[in-house]
Design a protein around this nucleic acid. Structure first.
Length: 159
DNA sequence: GCCAACGTTGGC
DNA sequence: GCCAACGTTGGC
């Protein structure tokens, strides 16, 4: 068994917020709708059960990390792709030959205070984060140290 | 709402 | 395989 890895997942809170995740049964949801190959590769191949996730609100006021989540199911085909009534239909992906993948995540801790993108950008220890350098990737790797620094900045303790 | 940065598509 | 046109993301 490999070591635990760390990720950052973005969502526009008007589309799907951390509060919505927390209100789900078991506080667990399918992370569907990702339609970017780089992010898909991570979802399909790299993101494993028990990995930790920073939940980031994009296009929000303010933008930033609002909490954590844990991966509870590793990559499997995103069946919303071949559902024409879904929010993200992608008919080239079929049940027999899926293109897009998703994982399931469960809400973890809610940050006492949001760690804003501005704060992340101004912290020299976080200058190599993908978020700072390739802001468009919606699922991205973070290091354990980056994860711990952001958790620390949130003033939140895990007991 | 604007627009820069980036990803995807498709003509050649 | 190149690259122009187009679409999307997401900060501001």
């Amino acid at each position: 068994m490999g070591a635990k890895n760390f990720w950052l997942m973005k969502s526009e809170p008007t589309a799907y917020s951390f509060e919505q995740l927390k209100s789900e049964v078991d506080q667990t949801a399918e992370w569907d709708g990702v339609r970017n190959y780089q992010a898909r590769n991570l979802l399909r191949d790299e993101i494993k059960v028990d990995d930790e996730v920073l939940f980031y609100h994009s296009n929000a006021k303010p933008t930033g990390v609002v909490g954590t989540a844990t991966v509870v199911r590793s990559g499997y085909p995103d069946f919303t792709a071949w559902d024409p009534s879904s929010d993200h239909p992608a008919p080239k992906s079929t049940e027999d030959n899926p293109i897009w993948f998703m994982v399931d995540i469960k809400a973890g801790v809610t940050f006492k205070r949001i760690v804003t993108l501005k704060e992340i950008r101004s912290n020299d220890l976080l200058k190599d984060m993908v978020l700072v350098n390739n802001s468009r990737l919606s699922v991205q790797p973070v290091t354990k140290s980056e994860f711990d620094i952001i958790l620390g900045m949130s003033g939140t303790t895990i007991d």
